Computed example of a mutant assay.
Amino acid sequence: MTDLTSLTLAEARKGLASKTFTSLELTDAHLKAMEEARALNAFVMETPDQARAMAREADARIGKGEAGPLAGIPLGIKDLFATKDVRTTACSKILGNFVPTYESTVTSQLWRDGAVMLGKLNNDEFAMGSSNETSCFGPVGNPWRREGSNTTLVPGGSSGGSASAVAALLCMGATATDTGGSIRQPAAFTATVGIKPTYGRCSRWGIVAFASSLDQAGPIARSTRDAAILLRSMAGHDPKDTTSVDIPVPDYEAAIGRSVKGMKIGIPREYRLDGMPAEIEKLWSDGADWLKAAGAELVEVSLPHTKYALPAYYIVAPAALSQSAPSLHSFSISAGMPS
């Protein structure tokens, strides 16, 4: 049998449906991998008993032909997501051993669709960081190394635990959050796939807030298809989140592999900066060539306000954070939702 931890989520889903292996076997394989890779510090809490119970339930549903779209798939959950009866700290000593009495909307939808929780993943404290070195549980290591070196690299942040765990094959996918790059940057640092969905696409209810006007939940996965599969379960309207968009959730997976032939794609002039490293310049040019070869028409466009993006972020994000901070006390003692 193929090493179960090396499968993509899509491949595991197929194997579970054909009963080539069970969810319990798949879960046990990942729990063992987690034990052997604790030096990465990707998980801040492992939930093996709960994982095995959820796996057995998934196997029963698969046996009855009642499997959900994520039935039996083992996932890791960023420690910003409230998980009922499982410690949620945002990787800060401020929340201590806070155990929510409720479940975040995003994770509740993953469990609704049959996913299995392996444990809670490390992140920068309250999502404030870009290297996952500010967590009260210590820094996360990147499973990748520079060629010819064994020096530990950072996995990026704030979703460093999510990215590291997926890259190290410790889980088949992970939840993450992105305020100003906290999904996209760690995914880039670990050769995984991450997407920050459009604001309002995924509910923020039950997620510890950094900046409520910018935060958005999304997946980190091993492939584009896996990310699409996860996002379909994570997305959806939630009346408990007033910024949640009430529109149907499309079948993201169905769009995978769709041709770009005939599409007109804009390339922002301002995104190519003076002094850009040669390797990045080459990747940019290669990407444009790939799109042309696939039949797309590339058009240079101007986004003149690009230069204001980062300064604006550093005004909006800290201002929003200053509003969230006072509510953390009530969150820790009354299970209230941070504003």
Rank of each mutant, 00 (worst) to 15 (best):
L9N: 00
T151F: 01
D215E: 11
L31N: 01
V301C: 01
S23T: 10
A67S: 09
R56V: 12
V245W: 00
D226N: 02
T134R: 15
T175H: 11
D215G: 03
E300Q: 00
S332E: 03
T134N: 02
D3R: 09
S135A: 14
P74W: 12
T8R: 05
K240W: 04
D289P: 01
K292I: 10
I280D: 13
A209T: 03
T175S: 11
L40E: 14
A317N: 08
G119P: 01
V245M: 06
M128L: 14
V299W: 00
A335N: 14
Y102K: 05
L153V: 07
A167C: 02
D274W: 04
F137K: 09
Q216I: 09
A209E: 04
G173N: 14
L153F: 01
W290M: 06
A217C: 14
T177R: 01
V154S: 09
G287H: 04
K120I: 03
D274H: 10
M172W: 11
S324F: 04
F126C: 02
T83K: 13
F81R: 10
V86A: 11
A174W: 13
W144T: 00
S233M: 02
G157P: 13
P250Q: 09
D59Y: 10
R52S: 09
K14S: 12
A294R: 12
A319Y: 05
T224S: 10
A17H: 06
E133D: 03
I94A: 11
T101Y: 14
K120L: 05
S212I: 06
L283D: 02
S159C: 00
L231P: 12
P100A: 06
S182F: 07
L153N: 05
T175R: 01
A71H: 03
S6T: 15
T20A: 11
M54H: 08
G181V: 13
T192P: 07
T8S: 06
T243V: 06
S324K: 08
H237W: 12
D178E: 15
K78P: 10
G180K: 01
T5C: 02
Q109H: 14
G257T: 09
C136N: 14
G129E: 05
M128N: 00
E300N: 03
Q323H: 11
G266K: 00
T2R: 10
I265V: 07
A127F: 13
Y102A: 15
L121K: 15
S259D: 05
S330V: 10
G206F: 10
R258D: 07
A10V: 09
P248D: 12
Y102M: 10
R222N: 03
H237A: 03
A53C: 02
L321W: 09
G68M: 05
D59E: 13
L283P: 02
R146P: 04
Y252R: 01
Y313Q: 06
I73K: 13
L118M: 12
T27P: 14
A312F: 11
K32V: 02
L75I: 13
K120H: 04
V166Y: 12
T192F: 00
T105M: 13
M34L: 08
D226R: 08
A39E: 11
I333M: 04
D85P: 08
C136V: 03
L303S: 03
V44H: 12
C91Y: 07
Q216K: 03
G148F: 04
P268W: 00
T198R: 08
S131W: 07
L16T: 10
F126N: 07
A191T: 04
A191K: 03
D226E: 11
S285D: 05
L31M: 07
